[in-house]
Design a protein around this nucleic acid. Structure first.
Lengths: 229, 229
DNA sequence: ACTGAATATTGAACATGTTCAAAATAGTGC
DNA sequence: GCACTATTTTGAACATGTTCAATATTCAGT
């Protein structure tokens, strides 16, 4: 018998099940919250047995990570659009990039809160800082790299190589703040973002002055120590 | 019958049991690790039933918090001594204070790792940032306040009130880094501390210059936004 | 010393993340 | 189509943090 579904791409049943579980999980996380949703709930809602969820995702947290990973790819066009719309100044582009990311994640703020659990431990496989998630992180950092080169920022030779990572760290700080920001519409985060980008841009201008060279040298040493390379 | 124990202080049995449980827990955390130690282990080792542990500590994490709380009081003299030994310069005193804290906590580094779990969420009762732990935090911050006034740092009027909190945040950053620093003897953290204090001291000197006023104004606005007051 | 209230202790039961051996299904070479 | 392997699915069992009704103990007032 002819099957419409199987014509295009012919996704294996496995992929479908995996997606079904992830969708069910995300729906329940949003409506009931992460902690309140049990793996049994998710499996039942997806129409599979409990164990099936673990066949596709090694842990409950891993489901959140899968969502995060998937999102990073899916939001890429939106981010590029938002960045392109903004004025070609580091301050504006930075704000546009991070702001677009927050907008995209807005409906899932409560879901991402789950990443806070182990997100701070670089040894944990689910941390954005872990070796495990290096691919995601590097794609993310590349976005900042792009902004920097497009804006033709004049930056000291020694600081240059670290700048994308620093901006990425700044972004992570904003996101962590945002996750736990319960102000109306997360307005505090948006204010923080506005002020933060302004400061970052100012600092970069100052960083070029000869006067700041000694301080910059120490700062770079600190950065390299923190990176552990 | 005469009882030697009851002469001095006459600690209620409750206090003894509570301490017995905490001691048992800390011992096992250190030897077996936090995750690997079960509440049943702790209770058994303390010679009580499982439920008793929960009568004294509302959760497993709470045991770690109790330890942290107790430590903060106990280490006070050591810290004051270390600070008094150091040169009366902000850079040195800051390093002495934070260094002393790390030294004290060194044997329990693995234990404190447990605080990383919910430590980043200010809404969680076990977070050092939570309203719940305000007393501990404020005593902690007072230590930095003291250093600042002793060193006769000349600091702009508008920045002054925020400075103790900022130094406290700096300390928390160092501690979080330290908890997950697996380098030999945590030498990376100590390097980070040396460089960090140097930068903090330098920034404070610069902060007084008229040139930096606009940037400082924005920074203070950011700080106030972050504090949410 | 006695008694009732406050406090302390028990251990079984519960909830939930996770594991795993067994069963069902899909895919492959002949 | 058949046998055989690999993949997928199942659901019961397990481990552990946590709760709680029942019981035991301590304490204060008389």
């Amino acid at each position: 018998m002819f099957n419409m579904e199987s014509v295009a791409k012919a996704p294996h049943k496995a992929e479908i099940t995996g997606r079904k579980i992830l969708d069910a999980a995300l729906n329940m996380f949003q409506t009931k919250g992460f902690e309140e949703t049990t793996m049994r709930d998710i499996a039942t809602s997806a129409g599979v047995a409990t164990g099936a969820a673990y066949y596709y995702y090694p842990s409950k947290d891993a489901i959140v990570l899968a969502f995060y990973e998937h999102s990073c790819v899916e939001m890429q066009p939106r981010i590029e659009h938002a960045v392109a719309e903004s004025a070609c100044k580091l301050e504006d582009r930075l704000k546009a990039l991070i702001g677009a990311k927050l907008d995209y994640f807005a409906p899932y703020r409560g879901v991402l809160r789950a990443l806070l659990k182990n997100g701070a431990d670089p040894a944990h496989p689910l941390s954005p800082f872990s070796r495990n998630n290096r691919p995601i992180r590097e794609r993310d950092i590349a976005g900042f790299q792009k902004i920097l080169s497009e804006c033709h920022i004049r930056v000291p030779q020694d600081l240059g190589p670290h700048l994308p990572d620093l901006l990425w760290m700044f972004q992570m700080g904003v996101i962590y703040f945002w996750i736990t920001d319960d102000s109306q519409g997360q307005q505090r985060t948006h204010r923080l973002l506005t002020l933060g980008t302004k400061i970052v841009a100012s600092l970069l201008k100052i960083a070029g002055l000869p006067l700041t060279r000694p301080l910059r040298k120490v700062a770079i040493e600190l950065i390299e120590t923190a990176k552990g390379t």
